[in-house]
Design a protein around this nucleic acid. Sequence first.
DNA 1: GAAGTAATGTAATATTATTACATATCATTG
DNA 2: CAATGATATGTAATAATATTACATTACTTC
Lengths: 192, 192
Amino acid sequence: MNMQTRTPPSTQPDDGYGFSDRIQHQLDHAGRLCAGQGGRMTQQRRDVLGLILSASAPVGAYDLLEQLKTSGRKPAPPTIYRALDFLLEHGLIHRIERLSAFVPCTHLQHEHTHDHAHAQTEPCLHSAQFLICRTCGGVTEIADAPRVLDVLKTICDKKNFTMQSASVEVEGVCEDCAQAATGQKGHAPTPN
Amino acid sequence: MNMQTRTPPSTQPDDGYGFSDRIQHQLDHAGRLCAGQGGRMTQQRRDVLGLILSASAPVGAYDLLEQLKTSGRKPAPPTIYRALDFLLEHGLIHRIERLSAFVPCTHLQHEHTHDHAHAQTEPCLHSAQFLICRTCGGVTEIADAPRVLDVLKTICDKKNFTMQSASVEVEGVCEDCAQAATGQKGHAPTPN
DNA sequence: GAAGTAATGTAATATTATTACATATCATTG
DNA sequence: CAATGATATGTAATAATATTACATTACTTC
Ligand SMILES: [Zn+2]
Ligand SMILES: [Zn+2]
Ligand SMILES: [Zn+2]
Ligand SMILES: [Zn+2]
């Protein structure tokens, strides 16, 4: 294989996707997290996560397929879906149900030591909350999720419903896009 | 057209689906609601809503297609999706994103005069909250939704995010199914 | 009843996701 | 190291969900 890139050194090879240093860093971090949970961050999975981290909006499975195709291998749907499943199970990405698309878990980007609110509380409670902008397509993972979860937990308790996972998705218009629309036009709504 | 049914009298013909009196009642009610909003509750839409009301769990678009086929007409996907869009727009049904399936709005079943929490608050805020049981497949629309919505609204305000619609979906195990699993076995988990 | 609007029919196609089975890669351990 | 078993990936086919574009029909209004 001829891969002569001039990227700065990283723990893992670069695969030719030209991931930024910051993303390489996050990928390395993600790899360590998986290892801690007995998971194997393979090259394939790493590539997929890298592509999701690089995007400025949720990415669909077939988008990822296309992007992976451009670089040597030509994976088929099961490949991508298996990688996505792995990343979901390890809390590295989230699926936005309303978009059938995927975003990185914000905690990866903020480089915590893995004390994120989801995947915690009880055996294993996967849960996340998002703001989805209809104008720019940007998605923001809500930080003060605990309050939302608490309310939900209370409701479930009252109904004797065992909560295993929860998704909260709010659609609307983000601050930037709202400003760009009302105030001065031509103010380029940047994704998030 | 020859339609000789011997069903008990109702505001509208029965189409041969054998909808119960209770459901016919709800359909009539829904029809009045639409009319009030300047919408036309056609036979097709009425049938689709009736089928959704009759089901004990969320129904997929293609399930509906199958069921409609059995009764004279043979609609194609666009037909069903158009009917579903109409019913969604008029707040008569909800889409469960995690299941790509549809449930009746609980307020239809409880026969309010249309003062339900969603489709209100602001110009038109569609929003709903659900508990989804993984065991029996039953879905419950959460009644005390206001609290959840309030928390979300607060969060959005703080971020200057304009909320247009929101969905909250909790997956887990309902009370009945949990009991059936732990306690006495063979206690037939009834859908919800 | 003619014109305009809303609803439905129809065929083709797009998008998202899974099944089943073959192959390859990695980790152990004897 | 070779044999083994477990994990991961490749591949082909197909399933499930949803939309586009355009023709037709049915209702409404004047
Ligand atoms: Zn997250
Ligand atoms: Zn925006
Ligand atoms: Zn409702
Ligand atoms: Zn149940």
